[in-house]
Design a protein around this nucleic acid. Structure first.
Lengths: 190, 190
DNA sequence: TGAACCATGTAAACAGTTACATGATTAA
DNA sequence: TTAATCATGTAACTGTTTACATGGTTCA
């Protein structure tokens, strides 16, 4: 009972307006996909638990069994408590970076190829984010104000990833830059 | 059977030299803690599975039930396969950033306080990494060569996080000017 | 003799993913 | 009528964390 950011993401999305599970699913895909992705099954399960805990409540039912959920007072209180009283957990796992450690088992070309892929991936992410940014109509409401901060983080992150990958490729391509020699990195090759 | 970076992290650490579970535990804490942390229990469980799958093998047993593991040929092959044939999964979840979306439910002071904490945290991480960097004796072996690349990523990441937090605080402190991003290049390049 | 370290394991709980399953409503 | 979309749910599985559990060895 100490991580559980999904519940709080749901509470946060319900602050402005009530929504059904299906509505939230779309908002997760649109706004939160890059920060806190959620599977459909997980969402519906969590909604039922939140309702059991009285942090949200069904305020209307519509066609096809649609249930419209709204935040309760204790739900809003819980969201605030989470924000001010709990420490965010920083996710350290990074598969892309883990692999870099072990690039020595590949030959020089393959190692550089891997880094080039990282660079390309960062560029793609950058472009996607720019497109997403352009597609959003930013208002003056609080979700927009803070959403813009999050967006900027994304831009900087991907720019950093791209620049780092370029720098790393350069390091490998100009041996002896930092160190005298790189005695045949291909030595291990299959 | 599609994520499982832990197994590959273990295989990677066994490339240079054989090691016991206990040795690996320390290497995880030292070198990989910031990229792929692993709990002790998970490590020992995974070692037994890797041995069952013949990707590693016990080459000696010592005092206190110590088992020295070494990479097998198929273990090295599997490590290479993972590196060249599988896509790294990019972890998108970011609790720190998720919270930024919902800062609107707090008052202005609290919101700024949260960002200040992020800035302080980034500075701390930066300093810790610098200390770690200084404590390492970098050689010419491949783990050092690629380890330096990983280290540089860390430096850039934390610098970026700190700069972003400062920028974000400035945004909130000077209301009315919602200018577009002006990424003041993370002039960190060599 | 006790603290610090070496060394390995099991079990339960939790979070997240993937697959399965069902059916209503709307619009071409 | 058929495809797309709306709408909700369950089950099995994987990976991770936390807690529990045991005991040997070294050194002050």
């Amino acid at each position: 009972m100490w991580g559980m950011s999904l519940r709080h993401a749901i509470l946060g999305l319900l602050v402005d307006r009530p929504a059904s599970g299906y509505d939230l699913m779309k908002r997760f895909d649109l706004a939160l996909a890059r920060v806190w992705p959620a599977a459909q099954s997980q969402l519906y399960t969590e909604l039922n638990q939140l309702a059991d805990d009285k942090l949200i409540e069904v305020i209307a039912t519509g066609a096809r069994g649609r249930k419209l959920y709204a935040l309760t007072d204790s739900g809003l209180a819980e969201l605030r408590r989470w924000l001010v009283e709990t420490e965010p957990r920083r996710e350290r796992r990074n598969d892309e970076l883990l692999r870099v450690f072990f690039l020595g088992v590949l030959n020089h070309q393959q190692a550089i190829g891997y880094l080039r892929k990282l660079e390309a991936d960062a560029s793609t992410n950058s472009a996607q984010l720019t497109a997403l940014d352009a597609s959003i109509t930013w208002d003056d409401d609080s979700l927009s104000i803070y959403g813009r901060l999050v967006m900027e983080f994304g831009h900087r992150l991907h720019a950093m990833r791209r620049n780092w990958a370029r720098w790393a490729i350069e390091q490998l391509e100009t041996p002896g830059h930092h160190r005298a020699s790189q005695p045949e990195a291909d030595a291990h090759d299959a």
